[in-house]
């Protein structure tokens, strides 16, 4: 297991958002984190990134992430594509990418191969891009460096169906070389990409296992995810 989470708790103000979350992520492939809105999926990702203070343990290849500042977690090889993209609107596309370079061997060729449009729009301010193009920048930023685990939070949110397919294709390619922990609401994307699934409900893990088993059980999908 590359990533192991044990009894993770997060309090945001008075809310006990994560209430003892535990799961393991095997090396390679895509593990999906599923659940209704507000059950703690994004908070789990933010806790793993050190963007909120958790209690409990989360280890990457044996190293406890919960005691490290965010930048050191990233330098251990944890890439992050946040919900809502969070590109730097005032910087150009090229500057957004340059900022993400952690060492001299940035994978520009890989990124421009996946997103040729970003090369053409290098001097355009990221704030003037469409939602789909901003998502490309957000994913490209994370893929510039080699990651041991890539945390991707709702990458298809708000995108047109054509772009959803394009993003899924990129993540499928990325998963050939990187372990991906993916928060996703679009079950067709999950079905296509994920080998394993973790389902959260009210801050607790209520399912871990093969994604295929979960998605083929309609009754369980309806109960756990609220999807008909």
């Amino acid at each position: 297991m590359i990533l192991e989470v044990e009894d993770l708790h997060v309090y945001l103000g008075q809310s006990h958002v994560l209430q003892g979350v535990s799961f393991s992520v095997p090396e390679g492939g895509v593990t999906a984190v599923l659940g209704r809105n507000g059950v703690g999926k994004t908070t789990t990702m933010r806790a793993l990134m050190g963007l909120v203070s958790p209690r409990g343990r989360a280890t990457l290849a044996g190293v406890d992430l919960t005691r490290l500042p965010t930048h050191e977690i990233v330098r251990l090889g944890v890439g992050y594509v946040p919900e809502d993209r969070e590109v730097f609107a005032g910087l150009t596309v090229e500057e957004n990418l340059r900022l993400a370079v952690r060492n001299g061997s940035a994978r520009y060729d890989l990124v421009y191969d996946l997103f040729p449009e970003l090369r053409e729009r290098g001097q355009q301010r990221a704030g003037t891009l469409s939602g789909g193009q901003q998502q490309m920048v957000a994913i490209a930023r994370a893929l510039l460096n080699e990651n041991r685990v890539l945390l991707v939070d709702e990458p298809t949110k708000g995108l047109a169906p054509l772009l959803v397919a394009e993003v899924a294709e990129v993540l499928a390619k990325a998963s050939e070389t990187e372990t991906i922990l993916l928060v996703e609401q679009n079950l067709s994307v999950v079905e296509r990409l994920a080998r394993d699934a973790i389902v959260l409900d009210q801050g607790r893990v209520v399912y871990t296992g093969p994604a295929k088993d979960l998605l083929s059980d309609r009754q369980r999908v309806r109960t756990l995810l609220g999807v008909a």
Partner: peptide, 21 residues
């Protein structure tokens, strides 16, 4: 300079790119 311009916009995201802000 790039880090500062980005940090003025979104400090947390700068750290999430592995930068000690």
């Amino acid at each position: 300079g790039l880090i500062i311009r980005a940090g003025v916009e979104n400090r947390a995201m700068v750290t999430a790119l592995g930068i000690d802000v």
